[in-house]
Design a protein around this nucleic acid. Structure first.
Lengths: 254, 254
DNA sequence: AATGCAGTTCGATATTGTCGAACGTGATTT
DNA sequence: AAATCACGTTCGACAATATCGAACTGCATT
């Protein structure tokens, strides 16, 4: 791992958490001499990855990162395949539909089909949710070979709400359950008042490359048990389009 | 400029143009030894900025860039201020509205309000258009102090369609015109069949920090001359919300 | 007006990234 | 089916390069 590149990305990640930071804040956060941090930031600024706001001397992310994000979405086959099915699922359930992929220990939303009730809803593409607090994340985790252990043993499972699964043992049990049913559930674990169901999507190698699912208002009743079946069927359909031979795959990786 | 960071960003930029590239393609494009390119790519992969697709050994952008892009949008005051006005402008003109900022020699779309006719339209947030081929870009360019020269003298103004302004002299004349009217126009210069009008948005320092405008189907008739007035008024309103003292500012920078 | 703080620039040192060569693997060709 | 080729990857030595500390500048504060 090249040191300066690692540091540059850490700068971007820091700015992604704390949106505006002064140089000294950045330097302290990354344990660097101010001049070192300055050199890194300068390089990022020259490419538009970071901009310093006028007047104040704080830094924030720049327009170049937006351009990259947009291109990423366009290159994702999973996304283009999932969109028609997501629309369909939203129409049939009356719920918002999310599709996500894994990023280290989080899930990144790559598509968001709003609830089809005509109301204005915040676009959620690009937001991240901890794997262990989301149905999307658990769905993928359950079908990963070795990597799952890393998350499970990494120690702290951050608590988002009082309901967040924070015990590795509990999570492990949940994953067994998910492998049995093909559907992951989560109640108020990431956001209070919001629960979700999701199923994993596989590619032609039988790898869990993403997950798709619905968001359920915690108060709302699921019309019978249909929803979970619809979610599973949607994931299966998308997987087939991606060339998956079976759903779930016979021996997941390993 | 730190060399390895510069190279890393060049890798991302290359992947942004040519979506999937093999290591050797990347190495050749950046004039690097394959092993050097590999080290850089490896560092990017470890942070999820780049992923190598399974099976084939090609690389493409990763989910981490999407997360960054999303946060960038959230931090932009221009965007949050512009959105309500963009909705209003779209409603009153019946046209799609775009808001953009400058990124080196391009304009990046930071908000896109679709035509209010209920049809499905591709979201345009994150796409880039060359400054000299877009009304948004020209609107900003006309009110920049020194930087404009860089673009004008950088040599080649890429041609997008047969209508693209490629002569620096012509562009200079257009900018004079824009400074006089406050509204930039463009006909078929970026995309055939699509024209646009835009006006610059200023912040409290009198800097052109963005531009907002409408997209007009080339065949479509503008209802009288109203549209250009509405665009100008919208830009003025957003500028005032950002703390601009005057529109246009008295002495643009300099 | 003076002081302190933060961002920035500059130069010397040694760490660190770079390159060339060698290895392993998968695909293609004879 | 064997061999060759091409490609991605790993490794180690060198020197270029990033890093750090100190000094400078500008701004805000007292």
């Amino acid at each position: 791992m090249i040191q300066s590149i690692d540091r540059a990305i850490r700068v971007l990640t820091a700015l992604q958490g704390t949106r505006r930071m002064s140089l000294s804040e950045l330097a302290e956060r990354l344990d660097l001499a101010p001049s070192t941090a300055h050199g890194i930031v300068r390089s990022l600024v020259e490419h538009g990855m970071v901009v310093q706001e006028r007047g104040s001397s704080r830094y924030q992310l720049g327009p170049a990162v937006l351009r990259l994000g947009n291109v990423y979405l366009d290159t994702l086959e999973l996304r283009s395949r999932a969109i028609p099915w997501a629309e369909d699922l939203a129409r049939r359930t009356g719920l918002a539909v999310r599709t996500g992929v894994l990023l280290i220990d989080d899930v990144v939303i790559i598509h968001h089909e709003p609830r089809p009730d005509g109301s204005r809803q915040m676009p959620e593409v690009g937001i991240v949710i901890p794997v262990h607090a989301s149905a999307l994340g658990k769905a993928m985790l359950a079908f990963l070979p070795e990597d799952e252990k890393r998350v499970l043993t990494s120690g702290d499972l951050r608590s988002m709400t009082g309901e967040t699964t924070t015990s590795p043992e509990t999570l492990r049990d949940q994953l067994d359950q998910i492998r049995a049913t093909g559907v992951a559930v989560e109640k108020d674990e990431a956001v209070i008042g919001e629960s979700s169901l999701a199923s994993p999507v596989f590619d032609s190698y039988g790898e869990a490359v993403g997950a798709i699912g619905v968001v359920v208002p915690s108060g709302g009743d699921l019309k019978g048990h249909d929803v979970s079946d619809l979610v599973r069927e949607t994931a299966r359909a998308v997987s087939r389009e991606l060339g998956a031979a079976a759903w779930p795959p016979r021996r997941p990786g390993q």
